[in-house]
Structure formats: C-alpha cells, structure tokens
Design a protein around this nucleic acid. Structure first.
Length: 272
DNA sequence: GTCCAGGCATGCA
DNA sequence: TGCATGCATGGA
C-alpha cells in the first residue's frame, strides 16, 4: 500500500482486497452511510471520515496523517494481508467461489464498547432496524461531530439513562440489557480493556457474564470489537450455512474463522 | 393477519 | 446439560 498525503486528503494506492460497499454494509458495523457519489461517510472514535474508491485508489477526505495512523489504518485492518488470507480460505470448496464473488470483505476493528453495545441491540432484530436504533441512540446521546453526524455515546453518558429512555429509541425488550450494560461499563464492573487482553475462551466467558449477552453476541463483539479473528458467530443465517460443514470447520479456517464467517454470512444472506 | 430478524433469560426436566 | 417459551418492534 502506497500512502500519499495531499493537502487535507490521504490517497492510498495499490490497496488489495477492500470493497467498501461489501465491508461497510455487511452487518458488522451499523453506522456507515453511502453518499450519492458512491463514497462512504462515517464516524469512528468521534472522528468523521469520507472515503471513496477510484480504481485501485482510495481517497480519504479531510483527514490527517495523525488520524490515519491512530484510527483509520487499524480500523480498516490495513496491516493485515487479506490477499494471503483469501488464498487460504479458498482452499475450502464452498468458500472458493464465495471469496471470488464477494472479494474485498474485511473485518473492521471497531471500538469495543460500540461493538458490544450495537450487538446487544442486534439480537433477534434485522439489520435495517438495528441501524435505525443505533442512529437514534447516537443522535440523542452522542456528541455532535459535524452537521448530521454524531459520535457513538459513551458508557458514562448512557449510564444516566433509564430503561424507559432506551425503550423510547425502539430497542424493545433489549432496553433492560442496555441499561445494565451501560452502568456496568461506566462503573468499571465490566472492564473491556482487560477483556481485550485475555485469551479467547476467557474473554468470551467474561462477556457471557453480562446480562443480555449470549454466545452469539459475545462472539460478534469479540470478532468486531476485540480483535479476536478466531471468534465464529453463529446466527440464524450461519446455522443454515453450518449444514454444509457437518464435520466441523475446515483446517484452512484456523485462526481466521471470523473472516471466513463474514464471507459465509454474506453469501447466506444473498443466496439461502 | 402471520412470519421473521446477526438471541437471550428463564423455568423445567 | 438440554429444550420450550416469551419477548418488542417493524417490514415483508
């Protein structure tokens, strides 16, 4: 990858395996919006970004070298060799055509708190409605970053809300989960940084102690917010996919089960 | 009207 | 440990 800093923009050349449409709208993050010019806008860690693909070049608008190095490089997982990863995954018969068909899906390294919170909202819910709830949550309780754009609210801010406040956002029966989760994190009873440093199984056990967090939400949070690429979330779509793997997951998934999962999830949603 | 969505807590065996 | 059931909401 070749990086050029031009005025307030950053131009990335020779970026391999990144499809913005697939990556930003495949159900791992819920806050990116596609603009009329086919670019994508979003807020991560309280910082706004507009990113556009032009051939093999990506243009990051109105950002800085510092933000690229501290946020975007890691967020888009640019340090990982997805070409090598995709080649490994293609050793599997089902994934081989799937990786070709949906080439360019990456795992976004999201903030732990945001990932955990949004995937609690996601349970027994569809992606369109999840996005609506998360939007309302950010508008109501996030910090305004620019006109129409808000940060994801902190646990401290949300810890001041009542169950009724969460219900007003349309969270339904998940309101009580969000209320307790916010207070637990704000009080430090749930230590996300500590969980991030644990081995996978221990980290998962810690998350499973949280009211409203089961195995699926835990694995999503671990994969998308805690950098556990070997976490393998199984939802209603993935249960259908699992019929294709009666003997368990193939050897070539080892260590990158979560990335394989994301391709399979996308395939299932579009083909099953 | 019924069914379903990136499920989980609860109660009961 | 495993299985049945209720749960909020809105789109198809």
């Amino acid at each position: 990858m070749d990086i050029k800093y031009i005025d307030n923009d950053i131009v990335l050349k020779n970026v391999k395996c990144l499809d913005l449409d697939l990556t930003l709208d495949c159900g791992q993050a819920f806050r990116w919006k596609k603009e009329e010019d086919n670019s994508w806008s979003g807020v991560v860690n309280g910082v706004f970004l507009n990113i556009k693909k032009d051939g093999d070049t990506f243009i990051l608008k109105n950002t800085t070298k510092q933000d690229f190095e501290s946020i975007w490089c890691h967020y888009f997982d640019f340090d990982k060799d997805y070409v090598e990863i995709c080649n490994r995954l293609k050793q599997d018969k089902l994934l081989s055509p799937t990786v070709d068909r949906y080439y360019g899906i990456r795992i976004l390294n999201q903030d732990s708190w945001e990932a955990l919170c949004t995937f609690v909202i996601s349970q027994q819910n569809n992606i369109k409605r999840i996005k609506g709830i998360v939007d309302r949550l950010c508008q109501a309780y996030g910090e305004k970053v620019r006109e129409g754009w808000y940060s994801f609210p902190t646990a401290e801010r949300l810890s001041t809300l009542t169950v009724e406040d969460f219900e007003k956002l349309g969270t339904g029966y998940r309101a009580k989960y969000l209320e307790q989760l916010s207070k637990g994190v704000a009080r430090g009873e749930i230590d996300l940084q500590k969980i991030k440093g644990l081995p996978l199984n221990e980290a998962r056990q810690e998350l499973l102690k949280i009211f409203g967090v089961g195995i699926k939400v835990a694995n999503c949070a671990l994969l998308f917010g805690f950098e556990f690429y070997d976490a393998f979330p199984v939802d209603v779509w993935m249960k259908r996919v699992m019929e294709y793997y009666p003997n368990g997951l193939p050897k070539c998934f080892e260590g990158i089960e979560g990335i394989a999962q994301q391709y399979l999830f996308h395939w299932a949603r579009n083909n099953l």
